[in-house]
């Protein structure tokens, strides 16, 4: 499967985190919350007008801003 940005994932899909682009300032925060390369995440929904995206990971829900989610590279399953 090819690598895409998390923002390109359709709601309801489960994908696997591959890498972060280097410019993502948030990566230390994300990894501390368990969003690491190799982990499965499910995109629950995205808010309108490039609002935040809601993810399910390790059994909990978290939201990220669209601009940050863009820097998370994933592969489909």
């Amino acid at each position: 499967m090819s690598e895409i940005a998390l923002t390109a994932v359709q709601p309801g899909e489960t994908v696997r985190v591959n890498a972060f682009t280097a410019s993502l300032e948030l990566q230390s925060r994300l990894v501390e919350m368990g969003i690491l390369p190799g982990v499965n995440i499910r995109l629950i929904k995205s808010a309108p007008f490039k609002g935040p995206v809601e993810l399910k990971i390790r059994g909990y829900h978290v939201s990220l801003r669209w601009n940050d989610a863009q820097h998370i590279l994933v592969t489909g399953k």
Binding site: M33, E54, H61, V62, S63, D68
Partner: peptide, 11 residues
């Protein structure tokens, strides 16, 4: 401190 919007949506 960094601005971030990594926000948990608790049940």
């Amino acid at each position: 401190g960094k601005s971030s919007f990594v926000m948990e949506l608790p049940p």
